[in-house]
Amino acid sequence: MREFFIYLVILVGSTYLVRALPFALMRKKIKNRFIRSFLYYIPYTVLAAMTFPAAVLATGNMLAASLGLIAGGVLALQGKGLTLVAFVCCALSLMTDLIMITLN
């Protein structure tokens, strides 16, 4: 339990400072092009690395998860909102999973 709270302090403290510190202190714009570019790409590379391959393995049924993610990916490419994309991923994965369980 003590371990949990130590982890919590690190998690909460680092997340808060990363957000609030630049917001409170920053009065000028970053000029360095390399740093600006790096900061621009970071959100996408983090999310991409977190999603793959973890998402394919997340449900314990790789085929069902892949089908769900492909369907969600197609909708996401069309610019659909996060709620719809998330729902379609889950729904198609669930349907595939249920069909496979029934067939076995």
Binding site: Y44, T59, L69, G72, A76, V85, A86, L94
Partner: peptide
């Protein structure tokens, strides 16, 4: 089986952020 599928929601949200920009 339902819980397993729901684990995809958070990744679906990530996809929705990345894909339009990619």
């Amino acid at each position: 089986v339902l819980m397993n599928s729901l684990c995809l929601a958070i990744y679906g949200m990530f996809l929705a952020i990345i894909a339009p920009k990619a």
